[in-house]
Measured scan of single mutants.
Amino acid sequence: MQRVNMIMAESPGLITICLLGYLLSAECTVFLDHENANKILNRPKRYNSGKLEEFVQGNLERECMEEKCSFEEAREVFENTERTTEFWKQYVDGDQCESNPCLNGGSCKDDINSYECWCPFGFEGKNCELDVTCNIKNGRCEQFCKNSADNKVVCSCTEGYRLAENQKSCEPAVPFPCGRVSVSQTSKLTRAETVFPDVDYVNSTEAETILDNITQSTQSFNDFTRVVGGEDAKPGQFPWQVVLNGKVDAFCGGSIVNEKWIVTAAHCVETGVKITVVAGEHNIEETEHTEQKRNVIRIIPHHNYNAAINKYNHDIALLELDEPLVLNSYVTPICIADKEYTNIFLKFGSGYVSGWGRVFHKGRSALVLQYLRVPLVDRATCLRSTKFTIYNNMFCAGFHEGGRDSCQGDSGGPHVTEVEGTSFLTGIISWGEECAMKGKYGIYTKVSRYVNWIKEKTKLT
């Protein structure tokens, strides 16, 4: 034993070699072989497995989906700052455009905790909710729209109204504003409101030439003092309507412009014939205590009207009353817009006519005020429907199939267009061939041609 100890002390290297040989010859039971080890760690190889990531292109799944990435790591994937920024906006807080917040056709661009709407022409605001041009839906104005110097929408209202708090709607500024039905039992019968379409306001006024200088022999019209197929109006439903009495009662109609003036057809009036105007009328054979009678003290036909040349060209006249009318729910003026808007309103496509005229061709006159909704007829169809001249200051309205029309005794009465609950004068009943005849239409004086003249002559002093 002493000898062994001496050998170990003198030859430590020998001992180490012996131990190493023993270990190498022993069977290893701690580690699995290569094949079995792979069965336990069965993990798919990654895209760049075996390579240094710093030297390969980034992978979106590896960089940002398996674990949260930084902007720089995302930049490695896209290799483009702009594309990385677009991805980053949604990656950080989701897609803010998912709810489609942009209105009126706006395009949404996502941002971090926010979004941006790219608005089409005519709109602005956070969600493109603000109209900035009158060309689109009248700028959301209830009545009139004008573009300011910086191309912003400025709404306005006709006389007797003021802008509401929203700067879009119009509200009454006087007790009985024009064009409004205020009798409670008839307010439910107000005709369907007309909503502004998209309009090209630059070209809204037709490029028409008034044929002022045409000389033409007097034409022989049949029954051209021209509501057939209409309905009984309720008291106060058309408070701007008046009836004219002269040699015979209810020979023509008219509309209240203001307390002192009536507008009617020029062919209705004769110099030297006494005319009485009755406002607030409903049943011409009954006294309903809503009527107001006034005498006409002055007749002003349009300066281009000449019955000797043509009885229905420039067929418009103004009547001055001896005493002002007292405005109330049964006696209310009709609204008159400017030339541009009167023309736009007419193009809405349908209007209402009213009167006490004959209820059928050569038949009896109506006792109760009649009204009828009539569609506008395109000019080409209008011209083809008659052998008589249709001037540019006239328009056609009615039904091709016949059966409904204005008729004798309705002449001078109103053709009105309702705009968001307020009625505007767009025409004056003038003439036609018979009444409600198939293929024939009622012919009306186009008020847009005469609004400046009306307003100039009827100013209240």
Rank of each mutant, 00 (worst) to 15 (best):
Q2H: 06
R3A: 13
R3G: 10
V4I: 13
V4H: 11
M6E: 05
I7N: 15
A9K: 08
E10M: 14
S11A: 15
P12W: 06
P12V: 12
L14S: 04
I15P: 04
I15L: 07
T16S: 05
T16Y: 14
I17D: 01
I17C: 05
I17W: 13
I17H: 02
C18G: 05
C18W: 05
L19G: 01
L20M: 09
Y22A: 12
L24K: 02
L24N: 02
L24S: 04
S25Q: 07
S25K: 05
S25V: 15
A26Y: 04
E27L: 02
T29F: 12
T29I: 14
T29N: 14
V30R: 14
N36R: 09
A37R: 04
N42P: 15
P44H: 08
R46K: 11
S49F: 07
S49Y: 10
K51S: 14
L52M: 14
E53Y: 06
E54C: 04
E54V: 05
V56S: 14
Q57E: 08
Q57I: 11
E67H: 15
E67G: 09
K68C: 04
C69T: 04
S70W: 03
S70Y: 06
F71K: 08
E73I: 05
E73C: 03
R75F: 06
V77W: 08
F78H: 15
E79N: 09
N80D: 15
E82Y: 06
R83V: 10
R83L: 11
T84Q: 08
E86K: 15
W88I: 07
Q90W: 06
Y91W: 04
G94R: 12
Q96D: 14
C97A: 02
E98G: 11
S99E: 13
N100H: 14
N100P: 04
N100F: 09
N104V: 02
N104Q: 06
G105N: 07
S107E: 09
S114C: 10
C117A: 02
C119L: 00
F123K: 10
F123H: 12
F123D: 03
K126W: 08
K126H: 10
N127C: 04
C128V: 02
L130V: 12
L130P: 07
L130D: 09
T133M: 15
C134F: 03
I136W: 04
I136A: 12
N138A: 11
R140L: 14
R140D: 13
E142I: 04
E142C: 02
K146R: 12
N147I: 08
N147V: 10
A149R: 09
D150W: 06
K152G: 08
K152Y: 10
T158N: 06
T158F: 03
A164V: 05
E165T: 10
N166H: 02
N166A: 03
C170Y: 00
C170D: 00
P172W: 03
V174M: 08
C178G: 01
V181D: 06
V181S: 11
V181G: 12
V183S: 10
V183W: 11
S184W: 08
Q185P: 14
Q185A: 07
S187N: 06
L189H: 11
T190P: 10
A192N: 11
T194L: 07
V195N: 12
F196V: 09
D198V: 11
D198C: 06
V199I: 13
Y201C: 07
Y201D: 10
N203Q: 06
A207P: 11
I210F: 08
I210Q: 14
I210W: 13
L211H: 10
L211M: 13
D212C: 07
D212Q: 11
S217W: 08
T218C: 04
T218L: 08
T218Y: 09
Q219P: 11
Q219K: 09
Q219N: 08
N222C: 05
N222I: 08
D223H: 09
R226Q: 08
V227A: 13
V227G: 10
V228I: 09
V228D: 08
G229F: 11
G229E: 10
G230L: 13
G230E: 10
K234V: 14
K234G: 10
P235A: 10
G236D: 03
Q237M: 08
F238Q: 04
F238G: 02
F238Y: 03
P239C: 00
W240Q: 00
Q241W: 09
V242R: 00
V243M: 06
L244V: 03
G246D: 02
K247E: 03
F251E: 10
I256A: 00
I256W: 00
V257I: 04
V257Y: 02
V257K: 01
V257G: 01
E259H: 05
K260P: 00
W261P: 00
I262R: 01
T264Q: 01
A266L: 02
A266V: 02
C268T: 01
V269S: 03
T271F: 07
V273Y: 06
K274N: 02
I275T: 05
I275A: 03
T276P: 00
V277N: 00
V278S: 08
A279T: 03
H282R: 07
H282S: 09
N283C: 05
I284A: 06
I284C: 04
E286Q: 12
E286C: 05
T287N: 15
H289C: 07
H289D: 09
R294C: 01
N295W: 02
I299P: 03
P301A: 10
N304R: 14
N306E: 05
A308C: 05
I309K: 14
I309D: 09
N310M: 05
N310Y: 04
N310K: 06
K311H: 05
Y312V: 08
N313G: 06
D315V: 00
D315W: 00
A317K: 01
L318M: 03
L318N: 00
L319D: 01
E320L: 04
D322N: 03
E323D: 10
E323W: 05
P324R: 05
L325S: 00
L325A: 01
L325F: 13
V326E: 13
L327V: 08
V331M: 00
T332Q: 04
T332E: 03
T332G: 04
P333G: 03
I334E: 01
C335A: 00
I336M: 07
A337T: 03
Y341F: 15
N343F: 03
I344Y: 14
I344Q: 07
L346G: 02
L346E: 04
K347L: 07
F348I: 08
F348L: 13
F348K: 06
G349N: 06
S350N: 14
G351K: 02
S354P: 05
S354Q: 08
W356S: 03
W356N: 03
R358E: 12
V359F: 14
V359Y: 08
F360E: 13
G363S: 13
A366V: 05
L369K: 12
Y371D: 03
Y371S: 09
Y371E: 06
R373E: 05
P375Y: 13
P375V: 06
L376C: 02
L376A: 05
V377P: 02
A380R: 06
T381V: 14
C382P: 02
L383Y: 11
S385F: 15
S385L: 07
K387V: 06
F388D: 07
I390N: 14
Y391H: 12
N393H: 14
N393P: 02
M394W: 07
F395S: 02
F395E: 00
A397W: 01
G398N: 03
F399H: 13
F399V: 13
F399S: 13
H400T: 11
E401F: 11
E401H: 14
G403N: 13
R404Y: 08
R404N: 06
D405Y: 13
S406T: 13
Q408E: 08
Q408K: 09
D410E: 14
D410R: 09
S411W: 14
G413T: 10
G413V: 08
G413Y: 13
P414D: 03
P414W: 04
P414Y: 07
H415K: 01
E418L: 11
E420D: 14
S423F: 15
F424I: 00
F424L: 01
L425M: 04
G427E: 01
I428S: 01
S430M: 12
W431A: 06
E433D: 14
E434S: 10
C435L: 03
M437H: 12
M437E: 13
K438V: 07
G439E: 08
K440G: 13
Y441D: 00
I443C: 03
I443G: 03
K446G: 08
V447W: 01
Y450V: 00
N452T: 13
W453P: 00
W453M: 02
W453I: 02
E456Y: 11
T458S: 08
T458F: 00
K459M: 15
